[in-house]
Amino acid sequence: TEKEKEVKRLAKERGLSPDQVRELAQRAGFSPDQAKQIADEFA
């Protein structure tokens, strides 16, 4: 999704850790499970 792409782009730009990616995703409105899946891509 657009929102997911945006979260991943920000995460890459900022060099976020997987935990930070998960927090960012949840703040963007993703469920905890979705946020974990997104964060796992950065693990």
Rank of each mutant, 00 (worst) to 15 (best):
D19W: 11
S17R: 09
K12Q: 09
D19Q: 12
R22W: 12
L24I: 04
E6D: 07
L16P: 00
A11K: 02
R27N: 09
L16K: 01
E6V: 09
A11L: 02
Q20H: 05
A35Y: 02
L10C: 13
R27Q: 13
R14T: 06
G15A: 07
A28P: 00
P18F: 14
A11R: 01
K12C: 13
G15E: 06
D33R: 08
K36A: 13
S31L: 05
L24G: 00
L16M: 10
E13P: 02
L24S: 02
F30T: 00
I38R: 01
K12V: 07
K3A: 13
A25E: 00
S17F: 06
Q37H: 11
F30Q: 00
K3Y: 07
L10A: 06
K36S: 11
R9W: 04
E23T: 08
K5I: 11
G29F: 01
A35G: 02
Q34K: 15
E23L: 14
E6M: 14
E2L: 13
E41N: 07
A25W: 02
L10P: 00
A39R: 03
E41V: 05
V7L: 15
K8G: 03
R27G: 05
D19N: 10
K5V: 09
E2Y: 11
S17G: 07
E23K: 09
A28F: 15
F42Y: 15
E23Y: 07
Q20E: 14
V7R: 02
A35H: 01
K5A: 14
D40G: 05
D19G: 08
V7A: 02
T1I: 13
F30R: 01
R9Q: 07
E41M: 09
E23N: 08
R27S: 10
D40F: 12
D19T: 10
P18W: 15
A28T: 06
R14K: 13
P32W: 12
A35T: 03
R27A: 13
Q34G: 04
E13V: 11
K8V: 11
K36W: 14
I38N: 02
A43H: 07
E2F: 12
S31F: 03
V7W: 05
R27I: 09
R27V: 07
A25F: 04
D40L: 14
K12W: 13
V21H: 00
R22N: 07
G29R: 02
L10H: 06
E4G: 10
K8S: 03
S17Q: 08
A28Q: 08
E23D: 10
F42I: 12
T1A: 13
K8L: 14
E4F: 12
L24C: 05
Q37C: 08
K3W: 12
K5W: 12
V7Q: 01
E41A: 12
E41F: 05
A39N: 01
E41R: 08
E41D: 14
Q34W: 05
K36H: 09
E2I: 10
A25C: 07
S17N: 14
E6S: 06
V7G: 01
R14S: 08
E4V: 15
D33F: 07
E13C: 14
G29P: 00
K8E: 03
F30S: 00
R9D: 05
D40T: 10
A11V: 01
Q37D: 06
I38W: 03
Q20R: 05
L16R: 02
D19A: 13
L24M: 09
P18Y: 15
Q20I: 03
A11S: 05
D19P: 08
R14A: 11
F30P: 00
S17E: 07
P18E: 07
P18I: 12
P18Q: 10
E6Y: 15
L24Q: 02
T1K: 15
S31M: 05
Q26P: 01
E23H: 09
E13Q: 12
G29H: 01
E2P: 08
E13Y: 08
Q26S: 08
V21L: 10
I38C: 03
V7S: 01
A39S: 07
F30V: 02
K12G: 06
K3H: 06
A11C: 04
E6T: 08
Q20V: 03
K8Q: 05
A43D: 08
E41Q: 10
P32N: 08
R22D: 04
A43L: 12
I38K: 00
F42L: 10
E4I: 15
R9G: 04
A25S: 03
K12T: 09
D40P: 01
E2D: 13
G15S: 07
K5H: 09
E6K: 07
S17K: 09
G29K: 01
S17M: 07
T1R: 14
R22A: 11
E4P: 03
Q37E: 09
G15T: 04
E23F: 07
L24P: 00
G29E: 00
L10M: 09
K5G: 07
A35D: 00
V7F: 12
K3D: 07
E6A: 13
E13T: 08
D40W: 15
K12I: 08
Q37A: 14
P32G: 06
K3S: 08
S17T: 14
E2R: 08
A28V: 14
L10Q: 10
E13N: 06
R9K: 08
V7K: 02
R22Q: 11
T1Y: 14
E2K: 09
A25Q: 00
G15R: 09
D19C: 12
S31T: 14
L10I: 15
R22H: 06
A43E: 13
K5R: 13
Q20N: 04
E41Y: 05
D33E: 15
Q20G: 07
A35K: 00
F30H: 00
A11N: 01
L24Y: 06
L16T: 00
Q34H: 11
P18H: 14
E13K: 11
P18R: 12
D33H: 11
K36I: 10
A35W: 03
D40A: 13
R22P: 01
A28G: 03
A35N: 01
A25K: 01
R22V: 14
E23P: 00
Q26M: 15
V21N: 00
V7T: 03
Q20K: 06
E4S: 14
D19K: 11
A35S: 06
L16E: 01
R9L: 06
A43W: 12
